[in-house]
C-alpha cells in the first residue's frame, strides 16, 4: 500500500511536471509571432504590446470549464461567428493538434 501510494505520488508529480512543461511550451506558442501570435489581438498574462481586437484571456478555467469548447474556439472561431477575425488555427493547419493541446494547458493557467 505505501509503495502504491508512493507510486501514485510519483506518477502524479511526473504527470503534473509534463503538464507544467507543456504549459510553458504553450506560452511560447501563444506569444510567438510565427505561431499563435495571440498577443496580436488579446492581452494575455505578462505579454508585451498586446492588441485589443479580441477580449483579454483571463480566468479561463471558470469561463471555459469544458476544454472541448475552448479547443473549438481555437480550432475554428468562424464556426461560432462566421465573420470572426480570429484565424482558424486548427482548420487551416496554422498550429498542429499537439501545439493546440499545449496552448490549452497554458490557457488553463490563466
Amino acid at each position: 500500500m505505501p509503495i502504491n501510494a508512493l507510486f501514485t505520488a510519483l506518477l502524479f508529480t511526473l504527470l503534473s511536471n509534463i503538464a507544467f512543461a507543456d504549459a510553458i511550451e504553450g506560452k511560447k506558442i501563444a506569444f510567438d509571432r510565427a505561431k499563435g501570435n495571440c498577443l496580436a489581438c488579446h492581452s494575455i498574462d505578462d505579454g508585451e504590446m498586446p492588441g485589443n481586437i479580441g477580449p483579454p484571456l483571463i480566468v479561463m478555467q471558470a469561463r471555459f470549464p469544458d476544454r472541448a469548447v475552448l479547443k473549438a474556439q481555437i480550432w475554428d472561431a468562424t464556426a461560432k461567428n462566421s465573420i470572426s477575425i480570429m484565424p482558424p488555427f486548427g482548420k487551416h493547419h496554422i498550429l498542429t493538434d499537439g501545439e493546440i493541446e499545449k496552448l490549452l494547458d497554458y490557457l488553463y493557467t490563466l
Binding site: 504590446m49 498586446p50 492588441g51 477575425i85 487551416h92
Partner: peptide, 22 residues
Amino acid sequence: GQLNFSCANCHVQNVGRKARSE
C-alpha cells in the same frame, strides 16, 4: 490566406483597434 482575413476584417470591422501596436 492561411490566416483567413478579408481586407474588411481589418480596415472596416476592426478599424481603430490595435493588432499588437499597429
